[in-house]
């Protein structure tokens, strides 16, 4: 009996010895790391490549100390045929400067040739999607813009106020990066008109947007965006805006090429004043080019 116990002890002793010898340092470090990860907050980065999906804003904000110079073009409708070289004869553009003021806040100014508009906006990231110690399923940003059109007055016989030329748009952007390649966002939007053309037109247009991107390689993604105007708050005789395109990223540039049925590039002009319909072939080719400049150098310790 005693011999048996003896043997058992020795056996377990050698077993333990072998086990101790075979400790895998790499695995040990990995487990340590996993434990630490749980105590850290990991924020999701790069839900979208750019601060715009196509026409509208994405949840991203320009990073702090960065200036983003953007040039956007929309050509004419492709159903113009060869006579207009499938729309290339007519181009409208928007030029803008966006600035990242803090890691969460960006502001921008822009000028569009379409209806000679100026626009200013700010976007603030309220929530950041995260995992680890604090789990936040979505990122959330708010965006407000003010637009003014500066076309010559058509009717000088009535009193005209500057405020009559102003429009406002307010957006809440809720986005989630589902995987490395797939991100989807929803953007409920309110567009306010100080003055509308007809008495029956609504001063407030409510729309719900949905946008997304699917990466097909680390530097290329396919983007799509749709704004649905809520019936009752819809501008009469307009279509909903739908756009689809690709993002190509090279160093400090992002090129966005797309097809859309909207000619305007400000919230008012594409959400509530899109005239063309995809079913009629009122499709416009367009592109956005974004070039970032570092204004404030990262100070190294």
């Amino acid at each position: 009996m005693l011999k048996k116990i003896c043997f058992a002890f020795f056996a377990s002793c050698t077993c333990l010895y072998l086990q101790a010898q075979d400790i895998d340092l790499n695995q040990m470090l990995e487990e340590e790391q996993k434990k630490e990860e749980k105590d850290k907050i990991r924020y999701t980065e790069a839900t979208f490549k750019s601060t715009r999906i196509i026409n509208g804003h994405s949840v991203e904000v320009t990073q702090k100390g960065i200036m983003d110079f953007r040039i956007a073009h929309r050509f004419g409708t492709v159903n113009g045929g060869l006579y207009d070289l499938f729309g290339l004869d007519n181009a409208s553009m928007r030029m803008s400067f966006d600035f990242g003021l803090t890691p969460r806040l960006m502001v921008g100014v822009g000028r569009s040739t379409f209806q000679k508009q100026y626009d200013v906006f700010f976007k603030y990231k309220l929530l950041r999607q995260s995992s680890g110690k604090r789990t936040m399923p979505v990122s959330l940003a708010v965006m407000s813009s003010a637009m003014v059109q500066t076309m010559k007055l058509t009717d000088t016989s009535r009193p005209n106020y500057f405020s009559s030329r102003m429009y406002y748009a307010h957006q809440v952007i809720v986005a989630r990066k589902f995987s490395e390649n797939t991100s989807i966002q929803l953007m409920p939007t309110l567009v306010h008109y100080n003055l509308v053309k007809l008495a029956g037109d609504p001063n407030d247009v409510i729309a719900i947007g949905i946008g997304g991107r699917q990466k097909i390689s680390p530097r290329v993604s396919i983007n799509a965006e749709y704004y649905y105007q809520v019936p009752g708050y819809k501008m009469p005789n307009t279509a909903n805006s739908f756009s689809i395109g690709v993002d190509i990223e090279t160093g400090g540039h992002v090129f966005q090429l797309h097809f859309t049925n909207s000619r305007g590039m400000t919230e008012r002009t594409f959400i509530s004043e899109t005239a063309g319909k995809w079913s009629n072939g009122d499709i416009l080719f367009g592109f956005n080019i974004s070039r970032v400049f570092t204004l404030k150098k990262n100070r190294k310790k």
Partner: peptide, 27 residues
């Protein structure tokens, strides 16, 4: 993270790629 087993002369090192800071811009 690093570990060295003196008895066997084994080692392992590990670094989380996202922990790198610096660079010329956030982008």
């Amino acid at each position: 993270k690093g570990a060295l087993d003196l008895s066997k002369n084994n080692f392992a090192f590990r670094i989380r790629i996202r922990s790198f800071e610096g660079f010329n811009s956030p982008l």
